[in-house]
Design a protein around this nucleic acid. Structure first.
Length: 639
RNA sequence: GCCGACGUAGCUCAGCUGGUAGAGCAACGCACUCGUAAUGCGUAGGUCAGGGGUUCGAGUCCCCUCGUCGGCUCCA
């Protein structure tokens, strides 16, 4: 048989007999590689190890070391789960079952709801299937054949019917389960080293709330038990950091059924942290040419009619009626956004190009009636405070304004130790504003990102109908991403409220409006910070920075004088004066994640000193009070 | 809003197939006055989320509402 040759990733050529598969190639290179081969990338396209090579391709063997490997494994695990479900529930009809970050899921339609017991049974079946090392068999079929194979699978039929008529349709079979699938898959089910089913949820078919709701089973899969264990440990770590739990343990905030869902109530310590962030932010904004405004929480409905909220956002708003006397009844709406107030400030006077850019900011508390199922502690609430600002500027100022915002984003994120990425969303199908405006605004955004050397992804057509936007996603201490800052151009409001300015040529022009938040919502940002720091706020944010721990009652007087001395220089300090052994007080302060504990006994009282205990480093020994204050100042100025 | 699970003391949880509610921590009181992560003893604390129903009897079974959790959808 004549040889063909393929190119390996290192650029070398390798001759193999014609008709060889990827597996044959791997074996010809080495038996270890043949053992390790999971799939391959042929000319950049992922294929199974059973794929027949035709010669001339560039071939990269995928092993469990490859970046694509886990995704392939998890996709295969989804098929194994589907097989198990089909064995247990023959009436099951299948939707889709992709690999996702950290795992996979499969959507199925069943006559009855799955229970946690069922999950256990499915896992057992899966373990059995894995132990059998069932091969994944690939076959290519024509459209009519595919329609026949899946005649009892309405969801699969829907997917097939949407494929282009000339598409090669591949199906994969292992055991009793056959799936419409592009592949590739691992060679056989035995390669799934470790898996676990994680949770059950409802999911609309194709994400459409008008279509049937299927049952979604989530799982995770890894090459080794060790990897799975580490994954489970990471989940535990995330639970340990959960801001809802820490918020209670650290006495930061609470949520009350009686008060209403999604309405966080801040306790003194939570309020203190929030105010620290706001004060810091406010100083930063003044420095950057912003002016603070304060606007009402409610407006007459007419305002919301003008702004468009009445027509487009009403179901998310709280409206109420007020009897103003003599039978006059007015509708009022609670603000879900701060724009109208800021616009009114702008509109209050004639504006000239000399006034621009005008940067108005507000810590504006807004209320949105979010769907009942979406609330999540501080991260998703119905009442929250945005660090909101609107910049009114001319077209040619957009670029510099956006650069300034990105600069602020960078400053803020690095102050808290976050890395971040940017995404640009462009014009959607349904949108307003001229092509020209979109062009200018989108270029302004992208140009600014480039000027700052920030990498970004583009979400084509994902912008708001009123303008393009940049979203900033930050990455916390354990690698999770959160959306916080958003920078949006808005063509809608200037139009609706008919705001203008006088140009240098004494003509009337419409300003550009840029809407932006840097922290997003204070609630969400605080929640992210709590989880990022696992509750151990850095010194400058810690609600209590120092706890004084007297050893015995006779030291209380001295404690009071130390406390006064610290308070005098603005240190947030408490004394644990209750009648407990000192070990207990230290344990409590550690649990409260207080940065410094000052142990005070006979020795310290005599010498005018304090024994400093750092929450992470432990006992640092005794130093004079003045020295401790200097130490705090040094640490704090690092911020 | 939709699917599923859940809601017992301030917190974490126990309470089997219906028979009149329990622990640890926290709180309060007393004793101990203590040297770097939890002193001992005692006391008090619950309309078992709320409402309705089934039953001789409901924390336990059924229905509704509210809330929480995990997803979906939404995120002008």
């Amino acid at each position: 048989m004549p040889d063909i040759s393929v190119i390996l990733p290192d650029g070398s050529k390798r001759d193999i007999p014609s008709g060889s598969t990827v597996e044959d190639l791997a074996r010809s290179i080495g038996s270890r590689l043949a053992q390790a081969a999971l799939a391959a990338k042929v000319d950049g396209r992922l294929v199974d190890v059973g794929h027949t090579l035709s010669g001339g391709e560039t071939v990269e063997i995928i092993t469990d070391k490859s970046p694509e490997a886990l995704e392939i494994l998890r996709h295969s695990a989804a098929h194994v789960m589907a097989e198990a479900i089909k064995e247990l529930f023959p009436e099951a009809r299948f939707g889709i079952g992709p690999a996702i970050e950290d795992g996979f899921y499969y959507d199925v339609e069943l006559s009855a709801s799955l229970t946690p017991d069922d999950i256990g049974r499915i896992e057992e079946r899966m373990a059995h299937i894995v132990s059998q090392a069932q091969p994944f068999d690939r076959a290519e079929v024509t459209m009519p054949e595919a329609l026949e194979v899946f005649e009892e699978e309405p969801y699969k039929l829907e997917l097939i019917n949407e494929l282009p008529a000339d598409e090669t349709i591949s199906v994969y079979r292992q055991g009793v389960f056959t799936d419409l699938c592009r592949g590739p898959h691992i060679p056989h089910t035995g390669r799934i080293g470790a898996f676990k089913l994680m949770k059950l949820a409802g999911a609309y078919w194709r994400g459409d709330s008008d279509r049937p709701m299927l049952q979604r089973v989530y799982g995770t899969a890894w090459f080794t038990q060790k990897d799975l264990d580490e994954h489970l440990t990471r989940i535990q770590e995330a639970e340990r950091r959960d801001h809802r739990k820490l918020g209670r343990d650290l006495d930061l905030f609470s949520l009350h059924e009686d008060a209403g869902a999604g309405l966080p109530i801040y306790h003194p310590k939570g309020a203190r942290v929030l105010r620290m962030i706001q004060e810091w932010m406010r100083a930063e904004l003044y420095r950057r040419g912003y002016d603070e405004v304060i606007t009402p929480h409610i407006y007459k409905a007419d305002v919301w009619k003008t702004s468009g909220h009445w027509d487009n956002y009403r179901e998310n708003m709280y409206f109420f009626q007020v009897d103003e006397g003599e039978g006059r009844i007015n509708d009022y709406g609670i603000k879900p956004m701060n724009c109208p107030g800021h616009i009114m400030v702008y509109k209050n006077d004639l504006r000239s190009y000399r006034d621009l850019p005008m940067r108005l900011f507000e810590f504006g508390t807004v209320y949105r009636h979010e769907l009942s199922g979406v609330m999540h502690g501080l991260m998703r609430a119905r009442g929250f405070t945005q660090d909101d600002a609107h910049i009114f500027c001319t077209a040619d100022q957009v670029h510099d304004e956006v650069i300034a915002m990105l600069d602020l984003v960078d400053h803020v994120n690095s102050a808290f130790g976050f890395e971040y990425t940017a995404e640009v969303s462009t014009r959607p199908a349904k949108s307003m504003g001229s092509e020209d405006m979109w062009e200018v605004a989108t270029e302004g955004l992208i140009g600014a990102l480039k000027a700052r050397g920030l990498d970004y992804e583009i979400n084509e057509g994902d912008g708001a109908f009123y303008g393009p936007k940049i979203d900033i996603k930050l990455r916390d201490a354990i690698g999770r991403t959160w959306q916080t800052a958003t920078i949006q151009a808005d063509f809608n409001l200037p139009e609706r409220f008919d705001i203008t300015y006088r140009t240098a040529e004494n003509t009337e022009a419409r300003p550009f409006t840029l809407h932006r938040t840097i922290l997003g919502s204070m609630e969400r940002f605080l929640g992210i910070l709590i989880e990022h720091y696992a509750g151990a706020f850095p010194l400058w944010l810690a609600p209590t920075q120092v706890v004084i721990v007297p050893i015995a009652d006779r030291h209380l007087d001295y404690c009071a004088s130390v406390q006064q001395e610290l308070q005098a220089v603005g240190v947030r300090v408490e004394t644990y004066a209750e009648n407990e052994p000192m070990r207990v007080k230290i344990a409590k302060a550690q649990q409260q994640k207080v940065p410094y504990m000052l142990v005070v006994g006979d020795k310290e009282a005599e010498q005018g000193a304090v024994s400093v205990r750092d929450r992470t480093q432990g006992d640092l020994g005794a130093i004079p009070v003045g020295e401790f204050v200097a130490m705090l100042e040094t640490t704090q100025s690092g911020q």
